[in-house]
Design a protein around this nucleic acid. Structure first.
Length: 1118
RNA sequence: GCCCAUGUGGCGGAAUUGGUAGACGCAGCAGACUCAAAAUCUGCCAUUCGCAAGGGUGUGAAGGUUCGAUUCCUUUCGUGGGCACCA
């Protein structure tokens, strides 16, 4: 029987799906283990062979842990918000939700083909409202929390408010606080919230009317269209990640990440200890204005103060100039009239420079401001410059430059001919700066004679004493920008009312993305959402009450839904709606059971949801249909007047109301439901949040009321998705505390280094906040991190003689041509240049082009002529590039699974090299792994046509009999040991080679014994589950191999008594000697000296030394 | 410019703690089986000198530490990834 991998894999995947083998329970007596992949962004290109590398590794490890007796959580989902879908929508008009849905379907089909053990019941998608509802909810937790600097943790902002109201703080008393306007109070609170809003700089492209990411800006112009880009201040949201800087640093000690990964995060956080020093700044004006002859020629006016940050206060006497960021607020104040023009020009120049340019450029630029700072210790006048190498966002945005000790300062001084003061004597050679801390200070006033590193503390102490400086810890990390002027992301659950950010009530979540007609930017560079006026603008018209339509004597508590246009009143409304939900009548509950489960036409209803200034019992926003279940009081005179006013108001807003009495619900429910169904059918569907009849309570709120129109960035959803997998279908909470307590931290997290700082830091921060608020029980999300390398594409090229239809194989580009070729091509003598063209790697066999396939692929070259190598082949050029569709170097895993099987594909990806390493893809080698699996198959099955197997060979069961020999056991147990060790240390490539060695040895020994082979199958299960399961069942086992027990290694079987020692002379290997393992140094020396080859090299002399390392080697030193 | 990683045969890679460099596989070469092909099996396969025995060289380059270095240190070059010029 042949190895029919297609049938085997298909059958078992089907069986596994039917029997739900991958379903994971949150309750188990087994120990838990959580293996997580960084979930993919579902791009339109589908998976290529680079994606599954990490997934296969995690799948192997999950299956391995399962065999080891763990309850393993190994989920998968999709990071489905993001720019590419939006760009695509902009180009094609297709809604991102549609394309995303389609892409996910493709991804899932591809993933399933590879045979991963995901529990798809736990799938999450960040763009699913049921998911981002909780992203928005967590954002609200961040918004409603502040970082307490004494307890070093997040606390509810309400605590802070209470403190202010009762005790005030160091800036204001409780009385003052209470006297502040609402806006003043909110501004103060905003400066403490963990999610907060402030003005920040963005890359603004006037021509495109949009904000651009750094990588969309090239050489100061937009990548698309080449329009100029400048910095512009816009209101943005931020996460106060800087508050967590110290805890993020400390947390690194408790997790198992690679040292380089920790190093990258530490560098990103960039904690430094130094001092802030304040300089007086003088400005020397020319005495042109003042004609008074008594004025001196250089009038010096006292201007302002400038604070710099430095990590080297010990070098204060070596300061030769000061550099201020061009964006610094003080620049305008301190620049002299003479320098004003130059300064303005320079500032304008910097404004046009992209961050990327400022980073990559080696050019030294700057401009003198005309101002001088005074060294507080020796009174020296120090020129103040501005330069783009000083960043406004770091430290104080100003530095004191010490050219003898800092490379950049030195180059700057050289470039602008600024004299350099040497404070480190012979340590400075005038050629280059020396950043040492070990020199003895000179020319340094009271610091003279001190070692620099000792002087740091002394200098700061003196500064603090004199009040000119203070100790300061600085972080290079900045608060994380959290808003994007885009469409395809989570909308902020925030309403702006008179400049105050008002969070939505949790009941209002999810705030779903409204439909838009265009995905282009909104006015003033706002996001596309700003284009939907009716969605954004919630500024109310007058309420019925204000229009005098509500009966004047109506008791407020009877109809509190009718409100005035004020924030306070709609807050009351929300509270009232909440209470209504709790106080629901029996009849309302009956209807709600029908409506909430979408039994009627699959429309979403909300209960006690404020609409247009009052609170209906039920509302379907898509249909603008309101259902009221009325009690007896509607017969009251007052109520009749009220109901009339209400109906009129709702009609203006486009709502229809149908009313039922309690007795109708109780006695003829089916008729009631029918009426509702009828009403739904009779009305047109409208976008849920569109239209003037806004569903929201602040329809009645006062002043200008607008929605936040930016959306959250890509990392919002991915900052907490690992928690949602634990409890993915919970509609009441983001994750049940019981579930997160059980699954706890992710035990193994696998993903690329490209997320080293971004995603990993953000999710670490979110986890810490959730921990502080008591919502989860751990404050580091990932216990262990494994970084998979990137698989690069291996591109293939053909070379075309420019302007001709002739392709030349690389070695034939430089002639000579045969007569035939010259006739065929019609080209003689001088030949034109060649152009290299990417060719689809899938039609190239190794490097040999399949010419027929090429012609089929590019029909325009159907009649092309190929000048081949001498062996008659057309050879392609090879280059390693990023794997990308446009280079035609992507390979679809599904194709490989079809050609070789998922098991082969999985093992081959692992066999390519260490998971952590980056390496180019080459399909060619997959044959070898496939051969291995066929060889394994033949240990169990006869191959009818093969020469060494005959049809009369014993059946698998018969072969499985017989005594197992020691040699066979040795082979097996060596494999058990090595596979276990290699899997534990993620050395999957060597594990695969161990399997190969083991199967080769068993085949050589003609070992067909069940006892040996079935253990081997268990070892193989994590790597090649389909073939393992098939052969396992062929051996007559009950149950699945997926749940077998990993075999135990028996060390006793591998004990050796001798060792074949390598014997070196002076470190060079000369011979080998088989020696007993229990010999001591003296015995070994004797035996070694008797050896012929050793004697030959000794040439009769005595050795200087003989080094003997037991069980390793022998080295004779002559 | 800065940070991190990385460099071993024609190719992917192995060498787990400083101890036999090149496991395993691909490609290639030679052979067996076959009418033939496929499949399978056997042998060779870093480089160089040599008929052989045996020797020289060799882990990007140059130094260093060591009895011994792919492994540790210094300098340097190339490649990949990241970035917010972080004083």
């Amino acid at each position: 029987m042949e190895y029919d991998f297609r049938k085997i894999e298909q059958d078992w995947q089907k069986k596994w799906k039917e029997s739900k083998v991958y379903a994971v329970s949150n309750e188990s007596a087994k120990p838990k283990y959580y293996v997580l992949d960084m979930f993919p962004y579902p791009s339109g290109a589908g998976l290529h062979v680079g994606h599954p590398l990490g997934y296969i590794a995690s799948d192997i490890f999950s299956r391995y842990k399962r065999l080891k007796g763990f309850n393993v959580l190994h989920p998968m989902g999709f990071d489905s918000f993001g720019l590419p879908a939006e760009q695509y929508a902009l180009e094609t008009g297709q809604h991102p939700a549609t394309t995303t849905e389609k892409n996910i379907a493709t991804f899932k089909a591809q993933l399933d083909k590879i045979g991963f053990c995901y529990d798809w019941e736990r799938e999450v998608r960040t763009s699913d409202p049921q998911y981002y509802k909780w992203t928005q909810w967590i954002f609200l937790q961040l918004f409603n929390s502040y970082f307490c600097n004494t307890q070093k943790k997040a606390m509810p902002i309400a605590d802070l408010v209470e403190k202010y109201e009762t005790k005030g703080n160091k800036n204001f008393t409780a009385e003052q606080w209470n006297a502040f306007t609402k806006k003043e109070q909110e501004d103060i609170l905003m400066s403490r919230r963990l999610a907060f809003s402030k003005y920040g700089e963005v890359n603004w492209c006037e021509a495109l009317g949009t904000v651009l990411a750094n990588d969309e800006v090239v050489n100061g112009v937009s990548e698309r269209g080449g329009h100029p880009v400048v910095k512009k201040k816009m209101r943005q949201w931020y996460l106060r990640i800087t508050a967590y800087a110290d805890r993020l640093l400390a947390g690194l000690e408790t997790v198992d990440f690679s040292d380089s990964m920790k190093e990258m995060q530490r560098n990103w956080i960039g904690k430094s200890e130094g001092a802030e020093i304040t300089f007086e700044v003088m400005n020397r004006e020319s005495p042109v204005v003042n004609t008074d002859a008594t004025e001196s020629a250089s009038l010096t006016t006292h201007n302002s103060r400038l604070t710099v940050y430095t990590t080297r206060p010990d070098t204060i006497f070596g300061v030769d100039f000061i550099v201020v960021a061009p964006e610094h607020d003080l620049v305008n104040e301190i620049k002299s009239t003479e320098q004003a023009v130059a300064v303005n020009e320079y500032v304008a120049y910097v404004k046009s420079r992209s961050d990327v340019d400022r980073m990559a450029e080696k050019k030294i630029t700057g401009c003198f401001t005309g101002a001088y700072a005074i060294n507080p210790f020796d009174g020296k006048e120090i020129p103040v410059w501005i330069s783009e190498y000083v960043l406004a966002g770091y430290g104080t945005g100003a530095i004191m430059a010490v050219p003898c000790g800092d490379e950049r300062d030195f180059k700057f001084a050289q470039h602008f001919n600024i004299p350099i003061t040497n404070i480190i004597g012979s340590h400075f050679n005038g050629e280059e700066a020396n950043p040492t801390k070990e020199a003895i200070l000179e020319n340094s006033g009271f610091l003279n004679g001190l070692l620099m590193k000792d002087a740091i503390g002394i200098a700061v102490n003196k500064m603090e004493e004199l009040g000119i400086g203070k100790r300061k810890v600085n972080y290079r990390m900045r608060d994380a920008g959290f808003s994007r002027q885009r469409y395809w992301g989570e909308p902020f659950p925030i309403i702006w009312s008179d400049g105050i950010a008002i969070p939505l009530d949790a009941e209002e979540l999810p705030l779903e993305l409204p439909h838009v007609d265009t995905y282009g930017p909104g006015p003033e560079g706002e996001g596309p959402l700003a284009n939907i006026k009716e969605w954004v603008d919630l500024t109310p018209g007058p309420s019925p009450k204000e229009r005098g339509e509500q009966p004047q004597d109506s008791a407020e508590n009877k109809t509190p839904g009718y409100i005035n246009s004020s924030v306070e009143e709609w807050r009351k409304t929300i509270a009232f709606a909440k209470q209504n939900r709790k106080d629901a009548t029996v009849e309302e509950d009956i209807i709600w059971q029908e409506l909430r489960n979408r039994k009627i036409g699959d429309f979403k209803f909300r209960r006690q949801h404020p609409v247009a200034g009052y609170i209906p019992d039920f509302v379907c926003l898509e249909k603008k249909l309101i259902i009221e279940i009325d009690g007896g009081y509607h017969n009251d005179k007052e109520q009749i007047v009220f109901d009339k006013a209400r109906e009129k108001w709702l009609k203006e807003e486009g709502f229809t109301m149908i009313r039922f009495t309690n007795s109708e619900v109780n006695n003829s429910l089916s008729l009631v439901l029918k009426d509702i169904e009828q009403a739904l059918q009779n009305k047109e569907t409208v976008a849920e949040n569109a239209g003037s009849g806004s569903p929201l309570p602040w329809r009645g709120a006062g002043g200008e009321v607008k929605r936040e129109t930016s959306t959250m960035p890509g990392y919002a959803g991915s900052s907490w998705y690992f928690l949602r997998y634990m409890d993915p279908n919970n509609t009441n909470e983001f994750c049940d505390r019981k579930a997160s307590d059980y699954w706890n931290q992710v035990d193994l997290y696998i993903g690329g280094t490209e997320h080293a700082v971004g995603h990993l830091l953000y999710s670490r921060m979110w986890t810490k906040v959730l921990f502080d608020l008591g919502l989860v029980g751990f404050d580091e999300p990932f216990k262990r991190l494994l970084n998979q390398g990137m698989i690069q594409g291996s591109s293939r090229f053909v070379y075309r003689l420019r302007g001709t239809n002739v392709f030349v194989s690389p070695n034939r580009i430089k002639g000579p041509r045969t007569e035939e070729e010259m006739i065929e091509t019609g080209i003689r003598g001088h030949e034109p240049d060649v152009d290299a063209l990417h060719v689809n790697v899938n039609i190239v066999n190794g490097v040999e082009l399949d010419i027929e396939a090429f012609k089929k692929w590019k029909p325009e070259f159907e009649n092309a002529i190929f000048i081949k190598e001498e062996n008659g082949k057309y050879i392609c050029g090879v280059e390693t590039e990023k794997m990308s569709k446009r280079y035609f170097n992507t390979v679809d895993p599904v194709d490989l699974c079809n050609d070789y099987g998922a098991d082969t594909f999985r093992m081959y990806e692992m066999f390519l090299g260490p998971v952590e390493a980056s390496k180019p893809w080459d399909t060619k080698g997959i044959e070898g792994v496939h051969r291995f699996l066929r060889k394994l198959w033949r240990l169990f099955n006869d191959d009818i046509k093969g020469p060494i197997w005959t049809s009369s060979a014993p059946s698998p069961l018969e072969r499985a009999g017989g005594e197992v020999t020691d040699a066979e056991l040795k082979v097996l147990h060596r494999a058990i040991k090595k596979i276990e060790e290699d899997t534990e240390r993620f050395s999957f490539n060597t594990a695969v080679s161990t399997f190969m060695i083991c199967v080769n040895e068993l085949a050589d020994m003609k070992c067909y014994k069940k006892e040996v082979l079935e253990k081997l199958l268990i070892l193989l299960t994590p790597y090649a589950p389909h073939i393992a399961e098939e052969l396992w069942s062929q051996l007559g086992n009950e149950g699945s191999v997926l749940d077998a027990a990993f075999p135990t290694f028996n060390a006793a079987l591998l004990v050796e008594s001798t060792k074949d020692y390598p014997v070196s002379i002076n470190g060079k290997l000369r011979t080998n000697m088989e020696l007993a393992l229990d010999l001591d140094q003296k015995q070994v020396e004797e035996l070694v000296l008797q050896n012929d080859i050793v004697q030959k090299w000794l040439e009769g002399k005595a050795p200087k030394k003989i080094i003997f390392v037991k069980n390793k080697m022998i080295n004779v030193v002559i």
